[in-house]
Write a protein that binds this DNA or RNA. Structure first.
Length: 136
DNA sequence: CGGCTTTGACCAGCGC
DNA sequence: GCGCTGGTCAAAGCCG
């Protein structure tokens, strides 16, 4: 960002967002983990990594590998707890969980975010979707 | 062979 | 007016 000197020689892309659309719900969970790729019951593909000023650590951007699943997930480490990662889910899933029910990988310690409450469950994603679907 | 990961670069909006 | 940040995309390489 310091040196953005570059020659524009590429076609523009239809990507722009003035205001956050209320359509996509945002869930922020604080999970105590050492790895970013937490198994929440879905597959995520990292599509970017940027360092934010709010945190001394870089933020990771993940996207659901599903087809009609436009769910995004951003993972960043806590500023005071390097052992804790802040997982923010954006959007809602529209596909079954690819992970088997026998997948009890994450041990988990989900804390309440700034407004929402999460339960320690391997199927955090499924639970989230269910909660949203039932609520909305 | 397929699928996933990583890095760099670019863009847009906003603030002062 | 300029600078800055945040966010996304693209391509390539590597691994199982």
């Amino acid at each position: 960002m310091t040196t953005m000197a570059a020659t524009a020689a590429h076609a523009a892309k239809p990507k722009k967002k003035k205001h956050r659309e209320p359509r996509e719900l945002r869930f922020t969970f604080r999970t105590q983990s050492q790895v970013d790729q937490l198994e929440d019951g879905y597959r995520w593909r990292k599509y970017g990594q940027k360092a934010v000023k709010n945190s001394p650590f870089p933020r990771s951007y993940y996207r659901c590998t599903s087809a009609a699943c436009g769910v995004k997930k951003r993972v960043e480490r806590d500023r005071d707890e390097p052992g804790v990662v802040v997982t923010t889910y954006e959007g809602k899933h529209a596909h079954p969980c690819p992970a088997p029910a026998t997948g009890h990988l994450p041990p988990p310690l989900l804390l309440a975010d700034g407004g929402r409450v999460a339960r320690g469950d391997a199927a955090a994603g499924c639970a989230q979707e269910r909660a949203v679907d039932t609520s909305a």
